[in-house]
């Protein structure tokens, strides 16, 4: 015997990353806030009426793109139970489903906004916060830690603080903030990620919306596992929001919840929020292994994806 090939493995030493089932596109049919609810079912119907043609267009667009027309399209609907609590699932959900059905829209998945902060003991918002890699202004050598304004994230350099740091030294003068990737002139964006009151952290709406996008893109993992999986709807709707699973699957034939790309149909009043969402998304470092998994899958089925995560998120404002 000359040599023996020995193999030795240690599971704890390896990184194993679960892969997410993926549709081609995840269409968000709506996002319900208290004010919409208070405006009554008419407002909901109107919303779905606006969304329906766009959803149909996107669906047929993907069907044309995919050989055999077998595009996997899933739809979802988000209810805000984080910033304000209103009504009950038992009262609200049937109303939403009915209004959607009137426009021939079927909602595949229903999600609660608070699950983007925390669900089933997993703090999704914290996971994403830990993955923020700040956009470095030119001249960032790594010699000092990134300049942070706790709880804020921006796309450039903030104005320097006035005042001097040395006795009898020159005082700092005001200077404008600058966008890092500016072309000619700056569009400087500074997003509040969270604030804290009495030790309790409240995540901002754009930050949770960024988490929501990443969740729909199947980009999040905790300890290598998918943080949330849709749960089939029960026979009846609970009376408390906390008793509703974070993501409920309403249609058992639905294509997977997460997808290569997302589409959200929104009222233009959400434009500033989505600018903030994109500012956040473009500074989230998704796990390299997850990126690679998705790339391999999409390549495998001949779907060309944008390299940048933020470019896989699309909108219709109208």
């Amino acid at each position: 015997m000359t040599s023996v090939n020995a193999a030795f493995g240690e599971l704890a030493a390896e990184r194993r990353i679960a892969s997410a089932p993926l549709s081609h596109v995840s269409i968000e049919l709506g996002h319900l806030y208290m004010e919409d609810f208070e405006a009554g079912p008419e407002r909901l119907r109107e919303q779905f009426g606006r969304v329906a043609p766009w959803a149909a267009a996107v669906r047929s667009g993907w069907q044309r793109r995919i050989p055999g027309g077998r595009a996997r399209v899933s739809t979802c609907f988000l209810i805000d139970d984080y910033f304000s609590r209103f009504s009950t699932p038992a009262e609200l959900v049937p109303m939403v489903l009915e209004a959607a059905a009137e426009h021939d829209l079927s909602i595949d998945y229903l999600a609660r906004e608070s699950s983007c902060a925390e669900a089933d003991g997993v703090e999704l918002a914290r996971l994403v916060e830990g993955r923020l890699v700040d956009d470095p202004p030119p001249g960032t050598t790594g010699s000092r830690p990134p300049v942070k304004e706790t709880g804020w994230l921006c796309n450039g350099s903030r104005s320097p603080r006035p005042g001097s740091v040395q006795a009898m030294g020159p005082a700092q003068r005001w200077a404008p903030p600058v966008q890092n990737a500016k072309r000619g002139h700056s569009i400087f964006v500074d997003v509040e990620l969270w604030d804290e009151n009495g030790g309790r952290r409240t995540w901002s709406c754009p930050f949770l919306a960024a988490v929501w996008q990443l969740l729909r893109l199947g980009m999040l993992r905790t300890e290598g596992e998918l943080p949330l999986r849709p749960v089939p709807a029960g026979a009846s709707w609970p009376a408390r929001w906390d008793d509703l699973p974070p993501i409920v699957q309403l249609n058992d034939q639905a294509a997977p919840f997460s997808a290569y790309t997302t589409l959200s149909v929104l009222s233009p009043r959400f434009l500033p929020v989505e600018l903030a969402v994109r500012t956040v998304l473009s500074q989230v470092a998704v796990d390299a292994e997850v990126l690679e998994q998705v790339r391999r899958r999409s390549d495998g089925e001949g779907v060309a994806l944008e390299d940048e995560i933020v470019d896989r998120v699309t909108y219709v404002f109208g």
């Binding site: 240690e10 990184r15 997993v122 916060e129 830990g130 470095p136 202004p137 030119p138 050598t141």
Partner: peptide, 26 residues
């Protein structure tokens, strides 16, 4: 958060933190 520390015990204990990124432009 949400990332495991990789640990191997043989032939010597070796623990590795998750990989983190730092942005640079210089």
């Amino acid at each position: 958060a949400g990332e495991t520390v990789r640990v191997s015990r043989r032939p010597i204990a070796h623990a590795l933190s998750p990989d983190l990124l730092t942005g640079v432009d210089c």
